[in-house]
């Protein structure tokens, strides 16, 4: 997105807070305290992590598994929970043939251990210090870091209006379905929009299909305040499609922050 900007523009950063913590990064042992299935494929893991000192919503962690024979496998997962001491919640969606996600969603039991390091990533994060309306656009399990932002928005004293556009294959693929419904019902400043790419609900007025320009709210102008910050997360193809639509809709590319994962 910002590749077309020239080099003179100063990088915008959110300094201070956990993201800017300095010094060497360490792997911390983490123990599974509890787990719950969110959909048929997605599982939330509640991990006890002694020494974890919190994170900013949107950040991720590296997870490392070590087998008895010493074989290790490492992946990155977004944190789903708002910041907390000594505890981290991840929501992992099983990828077909994925050795790490299959272990985390189907095999790992409470009491089992793994290692995590983080929090990672200062670019894709929101904190209550950032003022102004926020638009979140998530595809599939890309909703996970956006959920951390929504949960922080609810928990904090922020009054920033939030709008979530959540694209999933079918209603059965919606993660956090009841919590999202409740957020939308109880917070007038939080608006949740679900859209389906394969098949929706019987009374949907929108035809199933990938994200379209009319699914996106217009940016603000001199009279109406629109989103001052847009976060997009999902598979690479989804993120690039969404980012193009947002620019076509009139959003400034410098206001759009993206995070892609594979496939």
């Amino acid at each position: 997105m910002s590749a077309t900007e020239r080099a003179e523009g100063a990088a915008k950063t959110e300094s201070s807070g956990p993201a800017s913590r300095r010094g060497p990064i360490r792997w911390l042992p983490a123990r599974l305290r509890a787990a719950r299935m969110e959909t048929r494929l997605a599982r939330t893991l509640v991990l006890d992590v002694p020494g974890w000192s919190g994170h900013a919503p949107g950040q991720h962690v590296d997870v490392r598994l070590t087998a008895e024979d010493g074989y290790t496998a490492q992946r990155s997962y977004s944190v789903a929970s708002p910041s907390a001491q000594d505890q981290v919640e991840l929501t992992v969606q099983r990828v077909q043939g994925g050795e790490v996600s299959t272990y985390l969603t189907e095999i790992m039991l409470p009491g089992d251990q793994l290692e995590i390091r983080g929090p990672l990533g200062g670019w894709f994060q929101w904190t209550a210090r950032i003022r102004g309306p926020v638009l979140l656009v998530g595809g599939g399990s890309g909703v996970v870091p956006l959920m951390a932002m929504l949960r922080e928005r609810v928990r904090s004293d922020s009054s920033s209006p939030f709008r979530l556009i959540y694209s999933a294959r079918t209603p059965d693929h919606i993660i956090y379905t009841s919590e999202l419904h409740q957020m939308g019902q109880t917070h007038p400043d939080i608006q949740i929009s679900r859209l389906y790419t394969r098949s929706g609900l019987p009374d949907d007025t929108r035809e199933p299909g990938r994200l379209r320009i009319e699914d996106l709210p217009p940016p603000g102008n001199e009279i109406t305040e629109g989103p001052s910050r847009v976060y997009v997360c999902g598979p690479t193809g989804f993120v690039e499609h969404a980012a193009r639509l947002l620019v076509d809709r009139g959003y400034r590319s410098s206001d759009i922050r993206t995070e892609r994962f594979g496939s």
Binding site: S20, H60, E259, R260, F261, S263
Partner: peptide, 25 residues
């Protein structure tokens, strides 16, 4: 993030390895 590590992602996914080298994010 997540799996399918042979596919293209973005620099957010390199935050961990970069953090091993640099003092800050």
């Amino acid at each position: 993030m997540h799996e399918d590590n042979d596919h293209r992602v973005d620099g957010n996914a390199a935050a961990g390895i970069l953090r091993e080298v640099f003092a800050s994010d």
